[in-house]
Design a protein around this nucleic acid. Sequence first.
RNA 1: GCGCCCGUAGCUCAGCGGAUAGAGCAAGGGAUUUCUACUCCCUUGGCCGGGGGUUCGAUUCCCUCCGGGCGCGCCA
Length: 581
Amino acid sequence: MDTPSPYPFDRLRTEATAVLAATGLVAADAVTLAEPKANVPADLAFPVFAAAKVAGVAPPVFARQIADAVTLAPDSLLATVEAAGGFVNFAVRPEAFASAVLESVAARVDSYGEDKTIGAGDTVIVEYSSPNIAKKLHVGSLRTTVIGHSLYLILKALGYTVVGDNHLGDWGTQFGYILAAIHDNNLAPWDDPDPVAALMKIYADINTAAETDPTIKDAARAWFRKLEEGDPWARETWGRIITLSLAEFEKTYSRLDITFDTQVGESFFEPVLDAVIQEAVDKGVAMVEPGGPVAIDFDDKLPSCLLRKTDGGTLYQTRDLATLLYRWNEYHPARNIYVVGAEQRLHFQQVFEIARRMGYAEIADRSVHIPFGMVTKADGDRFRTRKGEVIFADEILDEAAVRAEAVMREQIAGGRSEVSESEITGVSEILGIGAVIYSDLYQGTDRNIAFDWDKMLALNGNTATYNQYMYARCRSILRKAGETGNANATLLMEPEEQAVLKQLARLPQSVRDAGDKFSPAIVAEWTYTLAKEFGRFYDKCPVLTAPIEELKAARLALVAATAQGLKNGLALLGIRVPERM
RNA sequence: GCGCCCGUAGCUCAGCGGAUAGAGCAAGGGAUUUCUACUCCCUUGGCCGGGGGUUCGAUUCCCUCCGGGCGCGCCA
């Protein structure tokens, strides 16, 4: 168990590379293998185009020469090799492959799919969720939370030491508004049954008032200055607001099974901001302008930006720069990842560029912004928070569970579900939350998403529910089977069986690709394809009533491996699986 | 005005230098008195936004135009 044997597809690649190199026609380091398209009856392909060019031979001819020269060992996982156009195609030996895949899953269980060698010894920071204090999590915060959490899990599976950082928006002029309102009107939001809702109302109200009363903006700035200067009442009140907000966030995070390794908010960096600005000025990166503001000019490369306001206050840019430098000193991370909305692209370009110019090229180069499109109203317009056009994360999770429960009750009434009354609430939560998470992960894009209840909470097609249903089916079969004898995997020769096995074998590479491209959608696509292949197998290949006992045992092993694969894949997305539904 | 992102089937999206461009939804047809039908199968549906170029080969790379989105110091 200490050093698990290589994954089947890795063995295939190693073997294919070796036999290709052994022909003497192509060097091992010139071999790049690809997965053939679905319509090609092969499992691994070597496109010879580049090598053919070097050899000065036409690709189809070269492919044939290579294929003719390859010899496969009798005990190889590879069964055949043949030329097809400019490709040399390999096909697996199905019996040997089946055994290898099932053994691989059985040996690793919950860690099947992981490859800790990729990131061993490296630290990666993932900044995600990062909500603003005194607000509730909403549709938008849900996206960064869900995407970031999955990335966190995927990178962990790849062996990185991952630091999940909830970079709280706990500093800034907006606190000036809230403090001013609380102070001047002698408010006590902490006495409200829903304190964060009270805070949101306070903020909304004073913003509305500020539209007609310009003195409010000045008062707000003054209060934020007091906060920065350490005014006792301002500090204490600010602290209370943070405590209330964190408690509110925690409710949602616990429903989503999310924890953070650290929650250093923007305020954490406040004591070092002056020094950071000074360093930028000293290094000639930033300039103090007449009147006091500190600005950075990027020539024609990027629009200029500010590190210090005319009133002496700092900005988001200043705090993010300080955060970046802090992370470099503290962690020396291999990657510093920001899961933040696409609208902040320029912001991060600027922050990274400032760091580079200040002499911190290493961290600048290792920092990466993972942008995502915003969630808009159905008509494509943005949600206007001030107009009360918000949809809160908890509302979504609640509605999702309600819908899941309604469908489940229908199924139970129709005699199509084994879920008992006492399990309904728990299973509804797993299904509902899974649906929400999956809808944010199954397609990776930085296009905007128009919010749509039905789409977000869909239960069939490419959804979490479908994946979970296939898992529940697996579990149901395994429960009914009870104890079984040893499985002879070499009996799994049906196309549906082989298709499930091949998809199972692809998990490790999907996880690597997902980590490489910072894309949970790659894992989501893998789980869905596995679920779909299992659906076909389920339809065509009876397990419990298999014609012979030995085949039944083999199929049961395949079902168990599929369940494990679905569970592991969904776990990397942050989605749980129900034993029955 | 400048910069960035996006434009692939009616809709939502994969694919991003290679083999007949793939899924889901929607629409239409079929299977099954089930190992849970939240299922399975089939059909319809694409000048991969337009036009140039690079390449043996372009949905994929470059240029340009069109359409949509986002952003462009003293909010975050």
